[in-house]
């Protein structure tokens, strides 16, 4: 596999020989792939293929056993979640991960790292010290809420939202960090078809705006509409890579799904 995209610039994200084993069981057994700038890269595979584990390792939530994760050519493997996030890699979770005791708007405002009042001294300095930064954040969140048709929910507690609305909140929250790369872990899980279609539109819109994404997804139709290229994993390894049409023609992929 080529390690760099054509040209001198390194790939946005490149994963090299990434492994994770739990007491002898290889959840991820040496995978290599890359995510192009500006693309929505799909990561598919049967249950237990190690997709979510791979995503978790890229996000810093799971410590890899070995291998490297190059972000803009710099190895970030093994760095904790919060440091990866500060390098403008945002993520969503498979299960809803909202801050249930806070309002939707607060969830969004929280997302921004490094607000002036978000340190002990900043907080002790008082409202005047951070009020203007707060106003800017609220304006940004307001725009985002409008864009995702969630304005009316701004002051509702996140814990009272429907499953689909929680998905939207999670995507919005990730966007508040101005990510360069967005990792999506099954964004359509538990979402009704109408909202699913809306989420697809949003994602395509974000792609048009220059955001790169890496997406784990089960729904093949969704992957077909959104993702290019698609990477297939099975039993902890990369099985195939290409456009969805190429993947469909691949006998090994078919076998893997039948076995899985």
């Amino acid at each position: 596999m080529t390690s760099t995209v054509a040209g001198a610039q390194p790939a946005l994200l490149e994963v090299r020989d990434l492994r994770k084993s739990y007491g002898g069981v290889h959840a991820v057994a040496g995978v290599s792939f890359y995510a192009r700038r500006g693309a929505i890269t799909g990561l598919i595979g049967p249950n237990g293929a190690g997709k979510s584990t791979a995503l978790g390792m890229i996000a810093g939530a799971i410590r890899p056993s070995s291998g490297s994760i190059l972000l803009n050519g710099v190895d970030i493997a093994g760095q904790p979640s919060y440091q990866v996030a500060r390098k403008r890699v945002a993520r969503t979770f498979q299960q809803s991960s909202d801050f249930a005791g806070m309002t939707v708007l607060e969830n969004l405002l929280t997302a921004r790292f490094g607000q002036r009042g978000d340190s002990l001294w900043g907080a002790l300095a008082g409202r005047r010290f951070w009020a203007s930064a707060e106003r800017e954040l609220i304006a940004k969140a307001t725009d985002l809420l409008a864009r995702f048709d969630m304005t009316k929910m701004a002051n509702e507690l996140a814990g009272t939202l429907s499953g689909g609305q929680r998905r939207l909140l999670e995507i919005m929250r990730a966007l508040m960090t101005d990510p360069e790369l967005l990792l999506l872990d099954e964004p359509m899980a538990g979402v009704n078809p109408a909202l699913g279609a809306r989420i697809e539109d949003y994602l395509l819109d974000l792609q048009a705006g220059g955001l790169s994404m890496l997406m784990v997804e089960h729904e093949m139709a969704v992957v077909e509409r959104l993702c290019d290229p698609v990477i297939v994993m099975a039993q902890g390894e990369v099985l195939a890579e290409g456009t969805m049409a190429q993947i469909r023609a691949d006998q090994r992929v078919l076998d893997a799904y039948l076995v899985g």
């Binding site: 979640s81 909202d98 801050f99 929280t110 009042g117 907080a123 990730a174």
Partner: peptide, 24 residues
């Protein structure tokens, strides 16, 4: 502290530790 942006970060840690970490 409790009326500042820091309070949101603290409550984020309380409500969902991993999600808070994923936001930096």
């Amino acid at each position: 502290i409790t009326s500042s942006p820091l309070s949101r970060s603290l409550r984020a840690v309380r409500d969902h530790e991993q999600a808070a970490a994923a936001l930096g």
